[in-house]
Amino acid sequence: MTLAAGLAVMAVVIGALGKNPLQAAGAVVDGSLGNSFGIGQTVQIWTILILAGLASAIPFSARLWNIGGQGQMYLGAMAAAGFGITLPASWPGAVLVPLILGASTAAGAGWGWLPAWIRNRYGASEIVTSLMLNFVAVLGAAYIIRDAWPQGFAQQTESVSDNARLPVLIDSLRADISIVLAVAAALGLWILMTRTRLGFAVRALGANRAAALLSGVSEGAVASAAFALGGAAAGLAGGVFVLGVHGALLNGFSAGLAFLGIAVALAARLNPLSVIPVAALFAILRVGSNNLQAGAGLSPATGDVLIAIFVIMLMVVGVIRFSYGELVDG
């Protein structure tokens, strides 16, 4: 029902741009699922969007605005590049990959925890701080790319060692194990949010702050945990970019996907399980949009525009609602 309404809105928007919606839809599906190259790309973006969606969904559940997903992703990518390049290339993948992805996750969690710490310590709004940390992280990556491990004058670092690359699952799609990790992360966080005390505390804080505090929830601890968990997911996404997608750290690698993760989290109503299908839908739109130029004469940015309008419509009709005094979907 919601999906149908969303598709209708998108059709109207494309019609307003003077193009045939059916033709555009055909181009999107063809570009994202029409051949093995497209499917492979869609799976990659799906993976990243699941993780980026989780990065927002967990803190948002506590009504804490983690807008620093991009920076956390960059920290994860920087850690992956650093370890992937410097650790001995002779070590087996079974050691290198978990070690490096662990470092990425930890780096993202640390960067994510920072705005929560500032909030707890100084009472400063996490919105501005988490946003600003994005720019700092992006510039840090630019420094690493230019100075620490440069690849000539290219906009990327040197490549990580072969053994550090993520093992490929399906050859024809070039799909690696990261999609399994992302789905597992979503499942794990869903269990955490619905079946544990911490998850309950996070959701209680978001649903009714006063009542949660009265019942003994420590706001500072919950904020730190929620931000660190979100940052961990984003950091893992950064690691996947470096070890899986590109094999190196690239300037501008995240291509707006971290911010799209916020849209994923919202459309999934902050439920970690729903993040999986929503991320798939948005990945299809994102990858398919690259085909719009050729297929319907529309810019690739159309996908992001459609997603943003779709999510705003969902908020307008009240499908996505940040209610006061009512538990968020879990």
Binding site: A263, L266, A301, D304, I307, A308, I309
Partner: peptide, 8 residues
Amino acid sequence: MFNILAIG
């Protein structure tokens, strides 16, 4: 969301 919309 408005920012994502505006950038796109």
